[in-house]
């Protein structure tokens, strides 16, 4: 795996939105398609790469995920799966949102998938009114319109307010 990458010990510096700097091994950073593309172009690894949309807490989580997946790419998939589920366990919705945004921005498909799936699992048994609040969605239905849309699939609302 890492043998194909020259200068495996090469490191680069990422800077979070709140100014914290993270020194990252290159093979770990390559889990991110965004960083890979930057490194493939003329961007020197000596530069500090600013990530103005990602705070230090989230970036630390993201890099923890990347390190595990970069180091374990030849080991068993089962081990990674249990790491993934443990990684997201007990994470609150705010942290999951930050994580999914960071994974999307940094183009880390595996992390994007597990974070999006975790959010879906968390909301799937919640009433739609609560989901509206979680996602800060403005309700643009009149009460009559909402009742009509609800009526189209009344059976799906059994047991829900």
């Amino acid at each position: 795996m890492a043998s194909s990458i020259e200068n495996n010990n090469e490191k680069l510096t990422l800077k979070s939105s709140d100014g914290e700097e993270f020194l990252v091994e290159k093979h770990v950073a390559l889990q991110s398609t965004l960083l890979q593309n930057m490194l493939d172009s003329d961007c020197s690894s000596a530069d500090v790469i600013p990530l103005p949309k990602i705070d230090a807490r989230t970036l630390a989580l993201v890099l923890g995920y990347c390190k595990k997946h970069a180091d374990a790419s030849s080991s068993k998939q089962g081990e990674l799966n249990s790491f993934d589920s443990e990684f997201l366990k007990d994470m609150d919705m705010g942290a999951l949102f930050n994580l999914v945004l960071a994974a999307n921005f940094m183009e880390i498909k595996g992390l994007l998938d597990i974070a999006a799936q975790k959010i879906a699992d968390t909301i799937k048994d919640k009433p739609h009114q609560e989901v509206r609040e979680i996602f800060h969605v403005e309700n643009d239905y009149t009460p009559e319109e909402e009742a009509a849309v609800r009526e189209e699939n009344r059976w799906a609302f059994e047991g829900f307010p």
């Binding site: 048994d125 009433p127 969605v137 239905y141 799906a156």
Partner: peptide, 16 residues
Amino acid sequence: WLPVKPLLRFRCVSKP
């Protein structure tokens, strides 16, 4: 990632 049933409920979240 959601099953169909909650998707049908979440049509009530908003028009978009």
